[in-house]
Amino acid sequence: MIRKTVIFALVFQFAGVFPAAAATYWSLFNVEGESSIGADYVTYGSLADMLADSNRLSVNTLGGFGRNIVGSGSDGSTYWSLFNVEGESSIGADYVTYGSLADMLADSNRLSVNTLGGFGRNIVGSGSDGSTYWSLFNVEGERSIGADYVTYGSLADMLADSNRLSVNTLGGFGRNIVGSGSDGSTYWSLFNVEGESSIGADYVTYGSLADMLADSNRLSVNTLGGFGRNIVGSGAFVTRDEPNPVPLPASVPALLSGLGALAALRWRRKTRQTS
């Protein structure tokens, strides 16, 4: 009985010290460059919900220039939206960064605007698993070669397209990749000829960054029909909540010490009786 009491007290004492995982996922619905309305960021509470477009948490519409958003991502602390009319803009793409999910969903309180000219006009998506960053270069549905995943070691390098770590080309059906993301453990690519496909979009999941970059060892293929044809990007943010321990009465440490001493004494007496 004393042992159970000690265990219960210890659990009670340390409850809330170790933070619980929290995650938010989102899909970006847009027929970019062609919609007069704009883009919709739809959020979900789990990867399964995002892959099935079920149990939506919120729908966040960005009108006007929002119609040019084609992708987004997060590394766990910074968020970004990718503004581009890919393959049609002579200027390039803009990575716009934000300090919170709420700011990204509303396109408010921008931290920076990072323009990539020239070949940057072909950037259609990006992502991060918290340590590695990548941009997706593609004129999707129009390129016979495919898509290039370009990786970087930092957010600053991705935003400037500098110090590339690798260039990973996916030919053939890879030309239909329009987005990707990661929650830190699972990775996914979004296959879609958005706004032109009557079928919809395919979310393909992988167990590692290497598998996503090579489109190998697929874990699942998740098809979203109908309005799913307008999905052009996605992302996720996974963090650990800040610890918020419940204040304990000053007498609790003394109580724990006393219970521990009683348990030790009982164990010693039991040992002597059996010896």
Rank of each mutant, 00 (worst) to 15 (best):
T132N: 10
G73C: 05
D183H: 11
N217W: 10
P253N: 06
A22P: 00
G181L: 04
P249E: 14
P245Y: 05
Q273T: 09
F29P: 00
S185Y: 03
V42N: 09
D94P: 07
V139H: 02
N84W: 07
V85L: 12
L10S: 04
I2M: 05
D49H: 12
P19C: 06
T169G: 01
V85S: 13
G64M: 09
A15C: 12
T24M: 01
G64E: 08
N163I: 11
G258K: 00
F191W: 02
G73T: 14
K4C: 02
S112Y: 01
G71A: 12
P243C: 02
G141R: 07
L219M: 14
G45V: 02
N222M: 09
A250I: 09
R229I: 05
V204L: 08
S162V: 14
Y25S: 01
S234I: 06
F119T: 13
T274I: 08
G38F: 08
A9Y: 02
F12K: 10
S208W: 12
D202N: 15
F191D: 00
A48Y: 01
T223H: 10
L57K: 15
S100R: 12
V204N: 10
N168Y: 07
L105G: 10
G153L: 07
A15E: 06
V204C: 09
D202M: 14
V113M: 05
A106I: 00
N192I: 05
